[in-house]
């Protein structure tokens, strides 16, 4: 009985910790963006950018974040060329998401350049995070 009680407490703590890690990473990054002059952040704007299609100058092909991440953030996506599975981005189904600053920064850099052809501004990154954290 006592063990079960402890297990429940422990699980509760772990879930809370994952949630806290995520909140703290998003907070830390958004604070950083604010220091750079950005904010306030809007989930609606983040979502708009998320679905917006961009034309690749070379191939002429249109693509967006959804090309790889699919139109359902709670589902797995697939890398367009290699076919490698991309785990769901929604923190509600994937607790690891938005818990590692280095990881978030790395993929912001890569994917903004990939889709927009340039780095995202602090405002845009803040909006993206505002949208993604609620998914």
């Amino acid at each position: 009985m006592k063990l079960r009680f402890l297990a429940v407490i422990l699980m509760g703590c772990m879930t809370t910790l994952a949630g806290l890690a995520q909140a703290s990473v998003v907070d830390t990054l958004q604070q950083e963006y604010k220091t750079a002059g950005a904010g306030p952040f809007s989930a609606a704007k983040g979502e708009k950018m998320w679905v917006e299609k961009h034309k690749d100058a070379e191939s002429g092909k249109e693509f967006s974040c959804q090309t790889c991440h699919t139109d359902d953030l709670k589902k797995s996506g697939k890398h367009e060329k290699t076919g490698k599975v991309i785990d769901p981005l929604a923190p509600s189904v994937n607790k690891e998401r938005l818990t590692d600053i280095k990881f978030v920064n790395k993929w912001f850099l890569r994917n903004c350049k990939q889709v927009l052809g340039r780095e995202c501004t602090p405002q845009e990154k803040g909006d993206f995070l505002e949208y993604l954290k609620g998914q």
Binding site: L109, K113, Q114
Partner: peptide, 9 residues
Amino acid sequence: HFGDNAELP
């Protein structure tokens, strides 16, 4: 990187 951005820190 073969058409993808794979920059690393």
